[in-house]
Nucleic acid binder design. Structure first.
Lengths: 103, 103
DNA sequence: CCATCTTATTACTACAGTGTGATATATCAA
DNA sequence: TTGATATATCACACTGTAGTAATAAGATGG
């Protein structure tokens, strides 16, 4: 799952799509208009984002509206935070060590 | 830069390497022992991680010791956090909206 | 039904990523 | 220097990804 999440985020176009959707929902066509790629390319990017549970698409007449998923990036955030906390903890230990040397 | 970071994290072997290094520094050979991949494959994974500024390698005699980079994942963390805050803000607005409907 | 609009899917090309074994490079020890 | 150890790099195969144009499929309106 983390594989799919991080891989989805590794593409700048897909991150841009997420940025746009963070400002509000958009139809597929509205998203296509924001980029210089063919409609088929954007459609596939949306499929990648959807399979990574980062966005959802719902029908609204002929259009399909894209929005951010309900609770996305939780797993990715957890992973990164755990890792960064590890790093922070090691720094703290280093500081303690230095303080002990001084005392 | 985010491209490289997220792409580096998209591989489970590389995330495992990071997990191992979070517990302490390791030589390349020690890392190779933990996996069922050829030495050349691990070496290349390490190069990917290093280019993404997630780890550093330093010489120690014949060996090269791998450790986590000094301040890694900051950018990735910022990106994810900004995005999750957006999502949190939207939830808050929804709650306000619902509260107004009730009142 | 037919025409149109919107989006998804397919077929294709080009390139990048991941794995391998073989080989090169660097360091140490004698 | 020679030999051993540790790591990096190369050449290759295979797979996956991102882009395109063309086509299919779903929804709406007449």
């Amino acid at each position: 799952m983390l594989d799919e999440t991080f891989r989805a985020l590794a593409d700048p176009t897909r991150r841009s799509i997420i940025d746009i959707l963070a400002a509000g929902d958009r139809s597929v066509g509205e998203l296509v208009d924001q980029f210089d790629f063919a409609q088929s390319g954007i459609s596939r990017h949306l499929t990648v984002l959807e399979r990574a549970n980062l966005i959802v698409r719902r029908r609204a007449g002929q259009k399909r509206i894209c929005s951010l998923a309900a609770n996305p990036l939780e797993e990715a955030d957890d992973w990164i935070r755990r890792y960064r906390e590890h790093w922070g903890a090691r720094l703290d230990r280093l500081e303690v060590h230095l303080a002990e040397d001084e005392g």
